[in-house]
């Protein structure tokens, strides 16, 4: 009887240790998800997003921080940095606030957009850069992809 109890206890402890080890291993090796695989937290127009930050940066931050956004807006311009890194800017050309979408490394820049062309971009909101230096303010989205 005692032996059987000990055996059960050993099995339980072994199973628990295995579960913890598997969990720790999986958790440690968990990769950051691709933008394609992340679910959208909020769908919003560029106009409304910019409006939220124009009213109060704090309100915008608390509403969108750590959120994945699907933004529909007018193409403003594109920045190309060294190493084929692209940023697409959405918004109105007359506004000093833009939505700056740092494109995912998978983005291949397939074609040129026209200014004013409406496009949909999915990305993770990472913060707001106020216009402290007279360069225009930016709502930053990271790891962005073009949504069809």
């Amino acid at each position: 009887m005692k032996k059987r109890k000990l055996l059960y206890a050993a099995i339980v402890v072994t199973l628990a240790l295995c579960s913890v080890s598997i969990f720790a291993y999986t958790e440690f090796n968990r990769k950051v998800k691709n933008m394609q695989d992340l679910s959208i937290d909020k769908t919003i127009s560029a106009e409304d997003l910019i409006k939220d930050f124009s009213i109060d940066e704090k309100i915008g931050n608390s509403a969108y921080l750590n959120k994945v956004l699907l933004v529909t807006g007018k193409f403003k311009t594109m920045d190309q940095a060294a190493g084929n890194r692209f940023s697409i800017l959405l918004g109105d050309s007359s506004s000093s606030i833009s939505i700056r979408c740092s494109m995912d490394s998978s983005y291949q820049h397939p074609f040129e957009y026209k200014v004013g062309q409406v496009i949909k971009i999915k990305g993770a909101y990472t913060g707001f850069n106020a216009d402290d230096l007279g360069l225009g303010a930016d709502i930053l989205l990271n790891k962005c992809i073009i949504s069809q």
């Binding site: 440690f28 090796n29 968990r30 990769k31 950051v32 740092s102 990472t126 913060g127 930053l140």
Partner: peptide, 18 residues
């Protein structure tokens, strides 16, 4: 010269590290 960056903008390979 001035630099600034948002901490949330750092991209890691592993989720737990980030």
């Amino acid at each position: 010269i001035q630099f600034s960056c948002l901490m949330k903008g750092f991209e890691f390979d592993r989720a737990l590290m980030m």
